[in-house]
Design a protein around this nucleic acid. Structure first.
Lengths: 77, 77
DNA sequence: CCAAAAAGAGCTTTAAAATGCACTTTCAGG
DNA sequence: CCTGAAAGTGCATTTTAAAGCTCTTTTTGG
């Protein structure tokens, strides 16, 4: 899952749960500025920061074996 | 997947592939010191740094919905 | 339409990550 | 056993993340 995909997933999840950035920041104990930077793709947060954020969203970061991507067809998840 | 689990997974994968820390550092373009810090649990790398490392190991970071953990039985993966 | 909420963005300071270098300790194989 | 390789660790410097504050722009709902 590329960086951008992680960002989009987090953002969508937050919107789906109807949580504002400010609320998520507060609930996760992460700075609002940090969250904004992350969601806008301008940040590069540490693992611990990301874990805090995704935890509140009921998500988790998982390591898995990379999916094989075929040259011609890039089937989205 | 908690921080520690991610660390252990990366380390095990590296060992499984019989790659030294030095080689992995080189192949991933991450500093050797950074990798060592990470594997020893003393570092807290950024998302981009982690992605570089796991990429070389044929792994990827994925966001998934958190698994429900039952109170009494903590079944490992 | 309008006002409040939410998101976007600039700025600055502090803390921490990244990393090269050198040295020590542990491990593995001959 | 011994030696080289690999891993562990201290240190210092540079770069970057974290985050609070403020202001601007966009969005939303009445």
């Amino acid at each position: 899952m590329h960086f951008q995909e992680i960002i989009q997933t987090v953002k969508r999840r937050r919107e789906m749960l109807q949580v504002t950035q400010e609320e998520l920041a507060r609930l996760s104990g992460v700075g609002l500025r940090t969250l904004k930077q992350f969601e806008s793709g301008k940040g590069n947060p540490t693992l611990q920061t990301i874990e805090k954020i995704v935890d509140v969203l009921g998500l988790e970061l998982v390591l898995s074996v990379k999916k094989i991507s075929y040259a011609t067809s890039e089937n989205s998840i």
